[in-house]
Amino acid sequence: MELEFDDKMPIYLQIMDRIKMDIATEKLKANDKLPSVREMATILKVNPNTLQRAYQELERLGIVYTQRGMGTFVGERKHMIDDLKQEMAKEVIDSFILRMKRLGFSEEEIIASISKNITEVNKHV
């Protein structure tokens, strides 16, 4: 796992986001084992406690589960992928809208610009 960090944001949140993203895009599937805290800490060059915290938070949210002595695994809750996608989509859209509003766009203008740009982006993807 490669990860460019933005040191302005808490590292554990960024690691959580990355794992959520991998689950949402099904790079990580239900019951897949996550790398151990130490492995992951070495790969990302991050304090092991920070990873511990990220894993604990994910567990609290029910996204992963731990088996004693076995490691941490991706949860198999129903609709988890959809929920994660929704959640992350909401984050992206919210911040997009906020920034557009700061730039002075009205609601209609925002919707119009999305409709206009979506076809252009489609060409590139």
């Binding site: 040191d7 302005k8 944001m9 808490p10 590292i11």
Partner: peptide, 14 residues
């Protein structure tokens, strides 16, 4: 370190 990043919205370096 994480709380400082969160509260100040800055990296430790900054």
């Amino acid at each position: 370190a994480e709380e400082l990043r969160l509260n100040k919205n800055k990296s430790i370096d900054e």
